[in-house]
Design a protein around this nucleic acid. Structure first.
Lengths: 217, 217
DNA sequence: GCCGTACCGTACCGTACGTTACGGCAGGGT
DNA sequence: ACCCTGCCGTAACGTACGGTACGGTACGGC
């Protein structure tokens, strides 16, 4: 028996992408209780094809998580004409984007199954989500932070520490509450307000003050 | 058939407590894959007793979570002879205690199963963990925060917002990374260092400065 | 001594679901 | 026209596990 689609093998046919999208919506609806039969029915494909393409249930889940992760790329920052204003707006934009993704039903569902399977997996969904979640965020934000430090707008020793503080100020208890099933009103206005507040707090802690930045609540 | 032990019925015999402790260790070892049979074998009791005492598998999990929650009570703060020093040490002590609990294997295991079951439960483990986790922390910390404000050491409009900021500064990405299975070195020294840093940052944001509090990394 | 209660150990049942196997159909190459 | 490949739909298999039933033992009350 062939080991089916390898993780490194990213050649997905359109048909397979459709199947993974169906699996995603089922994951949102039913969580980890989705069955191979339900995926096959929803995607109008045979279970035989599922097993041929993805090996087993775990492989299907892994491919689904990776398929979603592949869709959330992009949005780097431009290191042109840098100022306190562009640093601030960059941080705010980053924070609001992040909160929007984080509070989305797909992100919540994916993190749920990854947390449930963490550690005891052959493919280890937890590591995949970790890699495409917090770690990817760190990689995307750090250039902006270092640019801010190099231009003398911020001051910190350890970029990673600074990132993790920003993480805390942005996410706070939102993610864990959502994962635990707390019904959460997170309107567009609230997201933007939180992004501004987190940015102001972050600059108050790490920014080089010419004039004292006041708190913004 | 009787509805077995009600949630409000907290009268647990010693035998039942032993069983719940066995279930706890199994939860740490095997996560949500623990079976009724494995609990019975580990606790040297019959499955019949499990079902008589706890109704069904969900009831056993619920009782286990509540049993653990009941063990983590206490440590209120004393509103005597209050000063910046006692506020600082109170916040630090709270933060380090919290990080210690959060990073413990039991907490991680419990949060894992609760996240896995969130929303689609009759007993809703998510709500229970939420209630005994973040919400209980908020209830325990808020008196200290308000005391700090009333004595003019801190300034903020919304106690809940202040708490959530403290939450973010303390927990940062630690919890989600642990839940996703990231191997994490969290030594006693690191915990104390993080607690100090979070406290200093929190006071820098919300404290009333007589002398500028510097960051502490 | 006899009964009732509480419990252990284990065998058993029903079912859900992962996984496999098979029959049928459509399209493309020869 | 024939075959081969890829896929759908469905039936079937195997098993793990939640839940139940039952026999056996210890103990306290009478």
């Amino acid at each position: 028996m062939q080991p089916a689609v390898e993780v490194s093998e990213n050649a997905l046919t359109e048909r397979q992408k459709d199947v993974l999208d169906a699996a995603l919506t089922l994951l949102v609806e039913a969580g980890d209780t989705l069955t191979m039969t339900s995926v096959a029915r929803r995607a109008s494909c045979s279970k035989e094809s599922l097993y041929k393409w993805f090996g087993d249930r775990d492989g299907l889940l892994t491919a689904t998580v990776q398929w979603q992760a592949a869709k959330v790329r992009g949005v780097p920052v431009d290191p042109e004409a840098f100022s306190l204003t562009s640093l601030t707006s960059g941080l705010e934009r980053f924070a609001s984007d992040w909160l929007r993704v984080l509070s989305g039903t797909i992100s919540v569902a994916l993190n749920r199954v990854a947390v449930g399977h963490a550690g005891s997996d052959k493919h280890d969904l937890g590591a995949i989500v970790l890699e495409n979640g917090p770690f990817a965020m760190a990689r995307r934000l750090k250039p902006l932070l270092q640019l801010g430090r190099d231009t003398g707008l911020m001051s910190f020793d350890d970029t990673d520490e600074a990132f993790r503080t920003f993480f805390g100020l942005v996410v706070r208890d939102v993610q864990i509450r959502l994962l635990l099933g707390d019904r959460f009103e997170l309107t567009e206005a609230a997201i933007n307000r939180d992004a501004r507040r987190a940015t102001q707090q972050f600059l108050a802690l790490y920014g080089v003050h010419t004039k004292a930045a006041d708190d913004g609540h």
